[in-house]
Design a binder for these strands. Structure first.
Lengths: 122, 122
DNA sequence: CAGGATCCTTTACGATACTG
DNA sequence: CAGTATCGTAAAGGATCCTG
């Protein structure tokens, strides 16, 4: 007699669930979207630029998250030939495939904030 | 000489960053997207249905996350008049505004998985 | 400058058992 | 059935200091 539960327990759903888990395993954490979003806008930024633009992040988190993102080919890292050395980070082509997702997330957040203000935050 | 860093440190970016933080404060955690995605597909499901469909989740996390989502008006909770009592969860109209975001996340995850297989997982 | 090392706190998550 | 309570672990995150 249950209709939805049974019908929807199809492989399609399993695949979607798995896909969500996969995506989240790369994108979870407090800073990943901020870093990616900043690099998508800024195109190429130094470590210090990122540190300044991403409010609240510290060096440890920034370097750790950048390593994660680089490992997954979402950002690229280039050591410049300066003294002292400088590093430039950019979004990769693959990373750019997240642009619309990040846009949607940001836009949803903007609408959410509006709705909270309208209702006087309850 | 730095071009992007300075130019992009506009209020627009601040707003986007804030928006991303806002959205994530509602959607972060291991299970929120799974729950929302399942409810968007299933429309209305009981607690046990969700427990069965969301692989790996336990009663504690499920009830806690459902409470969070309900507080933020993303899902609705209805106690049915049965014995023993039954509860039905649905996505709200507001929750449905996340449909495309979740779709994108899932689709991105599917493509990601494909790309990993193609490259033989390194 | 870019980050690694260390230490510490906090939150997230999970297993199990229990209750109206 | 739909949770709550309790307990325990693991992971995430942050502050500070240090180094090539």
């Amino acid at each position: 007699m249950r209709k939805n539960a049974e019908i929807n327990a199809t492989p399609v759903c399993q695949v979607r669930m798995q896909a969500i888990s996969d995506a989240m395993s790369l994108l979870s954490g407090k800073w990943k979207f901020h870093i990616l979003g900043t690099l998508i806008e800024g195109n190429t930024l130094g470590f210090m630029d990122l540190l300044r633009e991403i409010d609240g992040i510290g060096t440890k988190m920034l370097s750790k998250e950048l390593q994660d993102l680089e490992m997954n080919n979402l950002v690229s890292r280039t050591v410049m030939n300066t003294k002292p050395i400088t590093v430039e980070y950019s979004i990769t082509e693959y990373g750019k495939t997240l642009s619309s997702l990040i846009d949607e997330l940001a836009n949803w957040g903007i609408e959410y904030r509006k709705s909270v203000y309208e209702k006087g935050n309850n």
